[in-house]
Design a protein around this nucleic acid. Structure first.
Lengths: 206, 206
DNA sequence: TATAAGGGTTAACAGTGTTAACACAAAATA
DNA sequence: TATTTTGTGTTAACACTGTTAACCCTTATA
């Protein structure tokens, strides 16, 4: 029992919560479940977390971090703005499909359950989108992309990717549609729309 | 108590369930809640519905029907394929934003909770997408749209619209983004992508 | 008249997040 | 040193959840 190996109970709770989340999913993530797995009573969790929401917030943080590192990696893997954007799109979808439990608590769970997320953490989550927005801005700067509002464009891209991830991983998409094709189309689609944006806006009167 | 006015209990359950869903949301839709509101015991619901899932399936049916009529209406309001498609996109998003409770049980709820939806009902839900796919096909037929696979294109459009609806109505989109602008961009974007699809596909190898 | 069926009830089970009250050891203070 | 206070954990309980089993009473049928 050296000082190193005795994990704080808080860490232990978080670890088993994450493990339980990835193995059995959010639906079966309960206070008593977590507590039983580590040999404590359920109520002792409340000594380290204000509520279940609070605990899940911590897990969301991990997810945000994970997604962030994936996006940064993708962003660094390419040099051109279009290449960077497409790489990030693929990274985003890959994260969503590979870690559906994380994705669920991050972007799907009804926000009434998941009570108001602390403002500072919100900023961190938003920064992931800003990485994408930066690529869009660079593209505009170099004349490849035509768009007046990078943040709006990034959000539009986000909604497209989010839609693909959620509908695919909830198995709501017709099985006759090839998931890979749909993902591929969505990613290319996002990038392509950045190139032709100007024409669309001027086309209609608004 | 003429024969007309005595509603069957089944209908009464369904009506209050729908009302409860729209007023208090799915989170507070419980068997006991429904039963209390109509002066019956919770277990009597099980005489008319196999389970809560079964009841929710019936509500989903109503939602599918409602969305379907909205899409058909939009489809009939315009003549050109592009006009029809865009009108349907706006109708879809409008439905999602105006009836979030319906949208939630139809397209957001984790399918583990909402156990397997009967196959016949699945077909009906899919038909809504096929209305959109028809517009795409017509567009291809008249040369306005360039696309090899109408069903894939319709699904891609669906994911875009779904992403906008869910991220907006769960208030996950940064408040500095104007929702109307985002919706507008998404809808125009979907239509515009149909026009330029061919170029995108041939652009990259695969 | 006896039997079966339909439509409803209460009690109970196993589970949920959460709070209140209590116990005990370690640390801080008088 | 003696006495508090604090930290860390417990059990019991509340108010919920979906669901099942057993029961009751009225109506229709053999």
């Amino acid at each position: 029992m050296s000082e190193k190996e005795e994990k704080s109970l808080r860490r232990e709770i978080l670890d088993t919560a994450r493990q339980l989340l990835t193995t059995t999913g959010y639906a079966r993530l309960s206070m008593r479940n977590i507590a039983n797995k580590i040999g404590y009573s359920a109520t002792s969790i409340y000594l380290y977390f204000e509520s279940k929401d609070d605990l899940v917030h911590a897990l969301i943080d991990e997810g945000v971090e994970l997604l962030g590192s994936r996006l940064s990696e993708a962003n660094a893997s390419e040099s051109s703005p279009a290449g960077r954007l497409e790489a990030m799109c693929r990274a985003y979808v890959a994260f969503g499909m590979e870690r559906p439990e994380y994705y669920e608590i991050m972007y799907v769970l009804h926000p009434e359950y998941i009570k108001r997320y602390p403002a500072e953490k919100y900023r961190k989550a938003r920064r992931n989108l800003e990485i994408m927005a930066a690529a869009v801005e660079d593209g505009i700067g170099s004349g490849v992309f035509k768009h007046a509002e990078p943040m709006l464009a990034a959000n539009l891209a986000w909604t497209q990717l989010h839609g693909v991830v959620t509908l695919l991983s909830s198995e709501r998409v017709d099985k006759r549609i090839d998931p890979g094709k749909l993902i591929d189309a969505a990613c290319r689609h996002v990038v392509a729309s950045m190139r032709t944006w100007g024409e669309q806006v001027s086309e209609t009167s608004n």
